[in-house]
Amino acid sequence: MSLKGVVSQWQDDKGFGFLQVEPNKPRVFFHISDYIEFDGRPENGMVVQFVLRQGDAGQWRAGSVQCVQKPTAQKRLQSDGRHKNQNQGDVGTVGRMVFVVVLGLLFVGTLAYFSEILAVWSLVMSILSFSAYSSDKKAALRKTWRVSENRLHFQDLLGGWPGGLLARHVWRHKVSKTSFVITFWLTVVLNILAMVWIWRHLGEILPTFI
């Protein structure tokens, strides 16, 4: 059953906040990963609909949070510390995006220095991985058939992790599930080791495949 509430004390830099369902009632926690709007971010004063679900520790939290009505300019101004927190959140988001892009370019650029074929391969796989994450995010919003996590991990393992990493931060998708995050970074390490091995042992014959 869907409930309605108002976003209160949203901390964009930390990626979580609370929903006030009724006055003088306990607020409901929700994380940015529970927010399934494809564009935009939660804001204080925003009216949303959501479902209650239990977390791993048995506590109640909001899930499938969707925007019903965005806050008016007056409500934004009335939210304590809203502008300060939003600016800090925007700076933090931009910083993370810049880091991700630089990391991806550095990886592909390093590959290109040693082997153009490996760099092109990683670039193509990154595009495919970015597309897969984007499709999964859209499917989550539409509640349709999802892209399997095994497929996402497999594409990352094959060299598409720069695109996967970028997509995760662009869409705020698959960023809070601990098991997924651990497996993702494991695929990154394994892919880098595999690229090094391929270059050292097969580097001389790679150009014959062009």
Rank of each mutant, 00 (worst) to 15 (best):
G45F: 03
L118G: 06
E204H: 14
K137E: 02
M1C: 05
R41N: 07
V175F: 06
Y113T: 14
Q86M: 11
W60A: 13
V28F: 04
M97Y: 12
G104C: 00
T183P: 05
F29H: 12
N191E: 05
E116Y: 09
E37H: 02
R200G: 03
Q49S: 13
H31M: 01
G55V: 12
G92R: 15
Q86H: 09
S176D: 12
V47D: 09
W121M: 06
F209W: 08
L105M: 15
H153R: 03
H31I: 04
S33V: 09
G109N: 13
Q20I: 13
R76N: 10
A167D: 04
K84G: 10
L77Y: 07
V124R: 07
R200D: 11
D90Y: 02
I192F: 11
V68N: 03
R53E: 15
C67V: 11
V65C: 00
S135R: 15
W161T: 01
S135E: 07
K177Y: 06
I127M: 09
W185E: 05
K174I: 01
I127Y: 01
G95D: 08
A57L: 08
D12R: 05
G104E: 01
H153F: 07
T187L: 02
I210F: 14
V170I: 13
V51K: 08
F209A: 04
L141Y: 15
R96P: 01
T178Y: 11
S126P: 02
Q74G: 04
G58M: 00
W145S: 10
V147L: 03
L77W: 06
I198E: 04
Q11M: 07
Q9V: 15
R53Y: 09
V7C: 08
P207R: 07
Y35K: 00
H169L: 01
V147Q: 02
S135P: 02
F16Q: 03
V181A: 08
H169T: 02
M1W: 13
V48G: 03
T178I: 11
M97S: 11
A62V: 12
S129N: 11
G203P: 05
G58T: 00
Q69A: 12
I127A: 12
R41S: 08
E116T: 08
A139K: 07
G81I: 10
A140I: 08
K25V: 13
I205H: 05
V28D: 05
L158W: 07
D90N: 09
L103H: 06
P42C: 07
V147D: 00
T72R: 09
W185Q: 05
L193Y: 13
G203W: 03
N87Q: 12
W185T: 09
L193K: 12
G109F: 05
I36W: 02
L165M: 14
V196S: 01
Q11R: 13
Q20V: 13
W10Q: 00
K25R: 13
V91P: 05
F114R: 13
S122A: 15
T93W: 01
L118Y: 07
S126C: 04
W161V: 04
T183Y: 03
Q74M: 08
D56L: 14
V48W: 04
L128R: 10
C67T: 15
F18T: 15
T183C: 13
Q20W: 02
